[in-house]
Write a protein that binds this DNA or RNA. Structure first.
Length: 491
RNA sequence: GGUCGCGUGGCCGAGUGGUUAGGCAGAGGUCUGCAAAACCUCGUACAGCAGUUCGAUUCUGCUCGCGACCUCCA
């Protein structure tokens, strides 16, 4: 656990060495999805990013509690009293009970996470299951005089809070400017008249009679505000102060800023030691958005059924592509880029499989140890998976050179590379190969077919040997002739 | 308008004050009955302008272009 892992802390905008408050335990919270629609490409990025972090912390020996919520209390569609909640709206459109909607999309979210090979979090609390905790937290904030009731709703008093705290530190904003900026040719917010200040945000909202999702509270029949769930649930499962909070950069303001205010406002302590934010995804250079017509669901990626996609891309291709970039950079998706990633990953897998066929040479170089160190140095440098992968390609070249008889590898290096691939590529980075047939019958049949082909080749009966190869290719079995006979793999 | 970030070779994408990212695509070579794969070699890129410096893609300033957030959004 002496690894010097450095991560970029959004709070200070610097890379800082990660030192947990209570090693070997680490508490990590990541904002989960609002389940009112199918999971899309944008969901893949943070959950893959923080899955890698979760896996890496485990690799380093930390016992990590990873909490990721499910928001099944839809946020309001717009900031007005008659605004509908997203889940309620979807329920009305699809003629379902709101909880049916939430369940349906929670299931599809889980399925997407599974095929992307993201490990399940340690705890996955739902907002609707923690209404009591949220009400409790609101009450504490009110007790501190940092929130006020108005018309059955409760608002956080940003100005008052700002007197003794730095609201805006995380996102680089100043409350006074928020008023100025807010007025800007923009909106006439209803409900604004209930607030003392434009920057105040809702902790509890009174529901109008037509609103379906509502719960009793000391103030009104209503529903919790947009940010309180994460504060309430992170405190419940990770304590007043925990190590890491992750999420997309778009959540920096106001969501995370408000989380800090709520937690500090209720217990007086800053909730998070390291804030981490992943950057956004673009498609063909443009932001992904429903109105831009370039909004792609993960399901559409995996089936190829979207007008912008020329083919289907496997979950592992999507994952690998994301890992080829640093998590704090925007990442652009295009068919060309995806296909490049698909081939690149196949290359690594191929090398990994070659390892089993290598015969050790007598050298005693420790190239594997050197490359391995470079890989983990990259991981320690703010999870630079792009660099780590580049070293893995280096390893791949060494393995392939050995396989082709160019530069044999010492037994220790072969083992070292195997360990590196197992632990880093398949372990920490969470890549996996598509399920092999795993069918002993197929192996046996292939051995037979290839031995017949070898005999034909020995007779120089190339029409037969080529026929076997071509027909196997049609059946999606790729045959490669090497120095020590042919090998095959599933295309 | 405010805050922040980005602009790298055909494409994607790291990174750095002077010495190799990497992947894909492309060119040549080796191997091979052929093919595929693999291996070897190759491109001398860092938006523009000015400045700091012995030296800048990397630092500073300006210009242009792009994007994110400021409103639900991963």
């Amino acid at each position: 656990m002496e690894h010097p892992l450095f991560i970029t802390n959004s709070l200070t905008r610097n890379k800082e060495q990660f030192v947990p408050a209570n090693a070997p335990f680490v508490g990590m919270y990541v904002c989960g999805p609002t389940v009112y629609g199918p999971p899309h490409l944008g969901h893949a990025r943070p959950y893959i990013t923080f899955d890698v972090l979760f896996r890496y912390l485990h690799h380093l020996g930390y016992k990590t509690r990873y909490v990721r919520n499910i928001t099944d209390v839809g946020h309001l569609v717009d900031d007005s009293d008659d605004g509908e909640d997203k889940i309620a709206k979807k329920a009305r459109i699809e003629k379902l009970e709101p909880m049916e909607v939430a369940k349906m999309y929670t299931d599809s979210f889980h399925e997407a996470m599974r095929v992307l090979n993201n490990l399940p979090p340690s705890i996955e609390p739902s907002a609707s299951g923690h209404i009591i905790e949220q009400i409790e937290m609101i009450r504490k904030i009110m007790d501190k005089g940092l929130a006020y009731e108005s018309g059955g709703s409760v608002y956080f008093d940003v100005i008052k809070y700002g007197e003794d705290n730095d609201y805006g530190k995380l996102s680089g904003r100043i409350p006074d400017e928020l008023i100025a900026g807010a007025g800007n040719e923009r909106r006439e917010l209803e409900g604004q008249d209930e607030k003392r200040h434009a920057a105040d945000f809702a902790l509890w909202k009174k529901a109008d009679p037509a609103h379906i999702m509502k719960w009793p509270s000391p103030w009104s029949m209503g529903f919790p505000g947009w940010h309180i769930e994460c504060s309430a649930m992170s405190v419940k499962y990770l304590g007043d102060t925990f190590d890491i909070h992750g999420g997309g950069m778009d959540l920096l303001f106001p969501h995370h800023e408000s989380e800090i205010a709520q937690s500090k406002g209720s217990c007086g302590k800053a909730p998070v030691r390291y804030w981490m934010h992943n950057n956004m995804i673009t498609i063909n250079g443009r932001k992904m958005g429903k109105s831009l017509g370039n909004f792609i669901n993960l399901e559409e990626f995996f089936t190829g059924k979207h007008k912008l996609l020329t083919k289907a891309y496997s979950p592992m291709t999507v994952r690998f592509y994301m890992l080829q970039a640093h998590y704090r950079s925007t990442l652009d998706f295009s068919n060309e880029a995806l296909q490049s990633a698909e081939k690149a990953f196949a290359k690594l897998v191929n090398s990994y499989q070659e390892l089993d066929r290598l015969k050790p040479g007598d050298g005693k170089e420790s190239v594997a140890a050197k490359i391995s160190r470079a890989c983990y140095d990259a991981m320690n440098d703010d999870l630079n998976t792009a660099i780590a992968l580049s070293h893995l390609f280096d390893a791949s070249r060494h393995v392939n050179a050995a396989a082709s008889g160019e530069r044999p590898l010492a037994a220790a290096d072969i083992e070292g590379f195997r360990k590196l691939f197992d632990e880093l590529l398949f372990g920490v980075l969470g890549m996996r190969t598509d399920e092999k047939t795993g069918d002993g019958d197929v192996e046996g049949l292939m051995d037979l077919v290839l031995s017949i082909r070898a005999e034909a080749k020995a007779r120089k009966d190339f029409s037969v040997s080529d026929k076997i190869r071509d027909e196997l290719t049609r059946l999606n079995f790729v045959v490669k002739d090497g120095k020590d006979g042919a090998t095959w793999s599933k295309g």
